[in-house]
């Protein structure tokens, strides 16, 4: 590390500082200052009228005892529990495409298509598909199934939301895995074939271990996506309902801040979310570091 910092003349170092300064400035103005500001606000009863009183840790205590917030955390835990599936499914699909199934390029394009759609459009599409008189229920009726209110019933709403999120994001993961697969050396797969490894054994013993850095990367990206990018879908598809069935922390923060006029409380909730994210980021940095050492 010390070697890297010693490279270059003083003039070059000044130029480096010059190039780094704008990004650093933006980071400070739009990330660090608001973070500190929010942290301060979380100890007040600030509202959108501009008055604020110091209330100590009240907001945090209230959050811990707030059933809506508790539900949103529980929903987040369920959401995160689906993460392995959101990583494994794209990996298997990428492996199959990489194996050269007929029409692989077509599948790759089709899988990736949803990734370029905004969550609002995805939400609009699935409103049509999933509503009570929607196309999914019509399709199921052909096989004699009763209609289900996928988005309106608290037992199915979160599952439906997760499925839509999976559909709209897994194409990107497929693409990342496909890029990763091209870095798995062909000769070690051939060596495994000679050593006696059948297709699934080659996957299990050679390909998947070789993809470990990619798996970890996709896992981190997927987790971050689940924690911070669900807002659009929740807003368009369920509005957090029915009840709190699909309320997630970021949606709740938006509700408290904008709709319920409690920026101080919303700031406290944001701090909880920030701590969760920081945990993920820490894990991410550790994983990347470990991979760099291999």
């Amino acid at each position: 590390m010390s070697d890297a910092t010693n490279i270059g003349s003083k003039a070059e170092k000044r130029i480096a500082v010059l190039f780094l300064a704008p990004a650093l400035l933006l980071l400070i103005i739009f990330r660090l200052i608001p973070l500190g500001w929010g942290f301060g606000m979380s100890f007040t009863d600030a509202n959108n009228a501009g008055t604020a009183r110091w209330v100590g840790a009240d907001n945090y205590l209230r959050a811990v005892n707030d059933p809506t917030f508790q539900d949103s955390v529980a929903n987040t835990v369920i959401l995160l529990a689906t993460m392995p599936m959101m990583v494994m499914l794209p990996m298997l699909l990428a492996i199959l495409i990489h194996q050269g199934v007929p029409g692989g390029k077509f599948f790759r394009a089709v899988y990736f298509l949803p990734a370029v759609l905004s969550s609002v459009i995805v939400g609009a599409i699935f409103n049509v598909v999933l509503r009570y008189d929607g196309s999914l229920n019509e399709f199921l009726a052909v096989f004699g199934f009763d209609a289900v209110d996928w988005l309106g019933s608290s037992s199915t709403a979160l599952g439906a939301l997760i499925a839509v999120q999976l559909w709209s994001t897994f194409g990107m993961s497929v693409l990342i895995f496909m890029a990763g697969l091209t870095t798995v050396p062909e000769d070690i797969i051939e060596a495994a074939r000679i050593d006696g490894a059948r297709f699934w054994q080659r996957l299990w013993f050679i390909v998947i271990p070789s993809l470990r850095p990619i798996i970890e990367f996709v896992a981190v990206v997927t987790t971050v996506g689940l924690l911070t990018n669900m807002f659009g879908l929740v807003y368009v598809l369920t509005g957090g309902g029915p009840g709190t069935a699909t309320t997630l922390p970021e949606f709740l923060i938006w509700l408290e801040q904008g709709k319920l006029n409690r920026p101080g409380y919303a700031a406290a909730l944001s701090m909880f979310l920030f701590v969760m994210m920081a945990g993920v980021a820490y894990a991410q940095i550790r994983i990347m570091k470990r991979n760099a050492e291999v």
């Binding site: 070690i188 051939e190 006696g196 054994q201 013993f205 271990p209």
Partner: peptide
Amino acid sequence: MVFQSYALYPHMTVAENMGFALRL
């Protein structure tokens, strides 16, 4: 077969590399 690039399995130890065929 012995490959030009050696084609060793990078995530396995030397012993695991050598014993892989027998394991399978």
